[in-house]
Simulated assay, not measured.
Amino acid sequence: MHPFHYCNVTVYGFHGCSAAVKSKILSGSAQFNRSANRYDWLGPGVYFWENDFLRAQSWARDMHGNSAGVIGAKIQLGHCFDISNSFAKAILKIAYDDLQADLSAARLSILINKPHPWNKGNPDDKVLRYLDKVVIDYAMAISQQNQPNNLYDTIRAPFQEGFPVYPGSAFREHDHIHLCVRNPDLLIDLFDPEEVG
């Protein structure tokens, strides 16, 4: 591992949820549920928008309407698989090639990413990341096999989403950095972002 990878950095993340879930988690009467959907592109864990309260709030309102909530968290990234980094992308390429070979030997086809099932947002977005999830899971399994004492605590990745911010722009309205926290011990401080300020 190259010494200059993204690790032991503290960031702020925002988790969209219902107001009821927010209240329970902030009061300590409940903990985050690990998301484990087939389309969760960074694999199982707790998902946060890095440094983007407004995006978390928008998502929560889309999902929960007037009963939406957002939880803020100070997150120690620990040992982070950062997909904005060339090292991580090289690992994903290897994982994809190995997975493709294994599936081909078993006469199985690989999954593909798909757009939103209800045609929400930009139809070019592939928000259901079935392919990316299996490749990430495969990469994490290989990593665990090769270095069982050096597991990844978090996965961090850029996500391009939405329509262009202005005509001709490569920036999209919902572009963001997504964090998947696999080790909940690194959620070092939870807070209500609507009460900060």
Rank of each mutant, 00 (worst) to 15 (best):
D175E: 03
R61A: 12
A30E: 02
D189H: 12
A139K: 09
N113V: 00
Q145A: 11
H176F: 02
D189G: 08
A60S: 11
H15K: 02
S67D: 14
A56D: 01
N183G: 03
E173M: 13
D52P: 05
M140T: 10
A68L: 09
S169H: 15
G45E: 10
W118M: 15
K22C: 00
L186K: 13
I142W: 12
Q76C: 09
N183C: 03
A20C: 10
H174E: 11
I83G: 05
F32P: 02
G13Q: 02
R172C: 14
Y6K: 11
A30M: 04
G13L: 02
D125R: 00
V196C: 04
L190S: 09
L131T: 00
V21D: 05
A90T: 11
N8P: 09
Y39P: 03
D82K: 08
H15A: 01
D40K: 07
S58C: 11
P167H: 12
F32S: 01
G13M: 03
L42C: 05
D175L: 01
N8G: 12
R182F: 10
I110V: 14
H178L: 11
Q31R: 15
A106H: 10
Y39R: 08
L151V: 15
M140I: 12
E173V: 13
C7V: 10
E195D: 05
N119G: 14
C7G: 13
V11M: 06
R129T: 00
I110S: 04
N51S: 13
D52Q: 04
P3Q: 03
R156V: 03
I71E: 01
A95T: 07
H64P: 02
G72I: 07
I142Q: 11
G197Y: 08
M140R: 11
E161T: 01
A19W: 13
L77A: 03
S23R: 14
Y47K: 07
